[in-house]
């Protein structure tokens, strides 16, 4: 680390374009520690990227329990009825 350079200035060198490209992996915790810290530092200072990060994470929160796509009523019964005709 050069004289006068802080830890934050060293890691906050990633630009918006690269943050967006990595935002999906970042949300999943699938980036290495170095990149994670750089993105985290960028998000602390960039409202634009923070909004995209939070919005994307919200999307995943809303769909992650699977209830958005419901199975039609009676689906299992009809499936097993058809299966039964083959298995018997």
């Amino acid at each position: 680390m050069e004289e006068g350079e802080t830890v934050v200035s060293r890691i906050a060198t990633i630009d918006c374009e690269h943050v967006i490209l990595a935002i999906s992996d970042y949300i999943e915790g699938a980036v290495d520690l170095c990149l994670h810290d750089r993105i985290k530092a960028h998000l602390a200072e960039c409202n634009h990227c923070l909004a995209i990060h939070d919005g994307t994470r919200n999307v995943l929160t809303l769909v992650a329990d699977g209830s958005v796509l419901e199975v039609p009523s009676g689906f299992g019964k009809r499936l097993y009825s058809r299966l039964h005709s083959v298995l018997k």
Partner: peptide, 10 residues
């Protein structure tokens, strides 16, 4: 992504 406003909380 488009420049929509922040959507910080659900």
């Amino acid at each position: 992504p488009k420049d929509y406003a922040d959507w910080r909380e659900i």
